[in-house]
Design a protein around this nucleic acid. Structure first.
Lengths: 228, 228
DNA sequence: CTTGACACAGAACAGGCGTTCGGTTATTAT
DNA sequence: ATAATAACCGAACGCCTGTTCTGTGTCAAG
């Protein structure tokens, strides 16, 4: 039989085992047993699998909980990363009214076909992640909020805001939805575009202004090339 | 003995088990055994744990792989979501040169203290996720790319680009780094700002222009309120 | 009161699974 | 050539673990 002795680092079988454990974990959401690892990597003896697992552990590539079945895990790599499924509730555009949302209702995020998956670590630190929803921006009307056509905005239901927070507001005056930084001043509201080169909008406190939510995140995928 | 019969839905023990499995999974990265569930939830008999697990499965709250040790997982909830750890390699600003990156080197994403976690489903569809890195934008110089101070840009190493792709370029002419849509024209390159109201930059093909990478994603956290 | 569904407990069984040990072959150093 | 070592294999041992079966006390309906 031919056995190649790798000078250092990961040999072929090390890599195969590592890949398999990772793939298995991803698919089944629990780690494989030693025997399963052996079967899928062409190792017939459980002791050999154990032999390699010991080495991988010494290399720091995996961690093991001895005497516990399926107690293998790949170090560092994925899993354990807390992700949220945030439902995509629809589009947002200048001309169309914003959705009416009850801040006290949890919108189903399980089995939701159209959802955005976001690692909790990506959210603003104090955000607990409850009741978030996502909207897809249609059109170029949000440019002064530094938001493009196709961007995804993650929002939190709210009907009021503190100074300096970016909110989605509906302006009955102009029949328009917009995203702006919100400031309350003496007798008016100042709606400040994110783009510092652009001028704010002022709305008198006597005029109607409906805050629909706070913007938590903006995500832009550079999916397809610009066609200009 | 006192036993409360819950009319419907999850009883106290259902919830306890569900919470424990979730917490255990998060901590150990593999599911608990039936006996472990019992111990920690105050159930002395394995059959009773099994009894509840069966119910939880019928409710669709968990999934089980029978006959497989530790074959429990909580439906819907986290895990299984394929996340990438993308290393944050530093800041990007107009005045400072861009990092020199070798597209063939994988930058360690394990044990990386400073990394961005992104669900694979969030990436552009054809992106495989290899060799990505992230930069944090400093300053307002990228405003014409619709990118703010504090934004995170996810990049892929590249030294050339196709028309319409957004790239990070270093312009020795102006001693400046910038993010623009890239277009090759007859005898010049056109660097088009993402903001359609702004004018493009033209660079003659004879002049130097270094493409340092393609922009894959932009992420903006609305962390702290605007202070203006 | 009886009956049946429900919520448990405990024990026993069988297969799953990690571990260990004896043994073999190939590679490398002496 | 020989010894040491690394890379295997197979089998056996014994705990781990899911499953199943019997039994008990509670509660509500008939």
């Amino acid at each position: 039989m031919m056995m190649v002795r790798k000078s250092k680092g990961l040999g072929e079988r090390h890599q195969k085992i590592l890949d398999f454990v990772l793939a298995y974990q991803r698919e089944n959401r629990y780690p494989p047993s030693i025997r399963e690892i052996g079967e899928k990597t062409g190792i017939t003896s459980t002791s050999v699998v154990n032999y390699y697992l010991d080495q991988l552990e010494k290399m720091g590539k995996i961690e093991r909980d001895r005497r516990i079945s399926r107690g293998v895990r790949v170090s560092g790599a994925n899993s354990s990363v807390d992700t949220l499924r945030i439902p995509m509730l629809g589009p947002i555009a200048a001309g169309i009214p914003l959705l009416e949302l009850d801040p006290n209702v949890t919108y189903l995020t399980d089995n939701e076909s159209n959802a955005v998956e976001i690692a909790r670590s990506l959210l603003p630190s104090k955000e607990n992640g409850d009741n978030l929803y996502a909207l897809e921006v249609k059109g170029d009307s949000m440019i002064d909020a530094m938001i493009n056509n196709g961007d995804i905005v993650v929002m939190k239901p709210a009907s009021e805001a503190r100074n300096g927070e970016m909110v989605a507001v509906w302006l009955p005056r102009d029949n328009e939805a917009t995203l702006k930084y919100f400031f309350k001043e003496k007798d008016r509201f100042r709606l400040q575009p994110a783009n510092p080169t652009m001028k704010p909008i002022f709305v008198k406190k006597s005029e109607p202004l409906e805050i629909k939510g706070k913007v938590v995140m903006v995500i832009r995928k550079m999916d397809k090339p610009l066609a200009i």
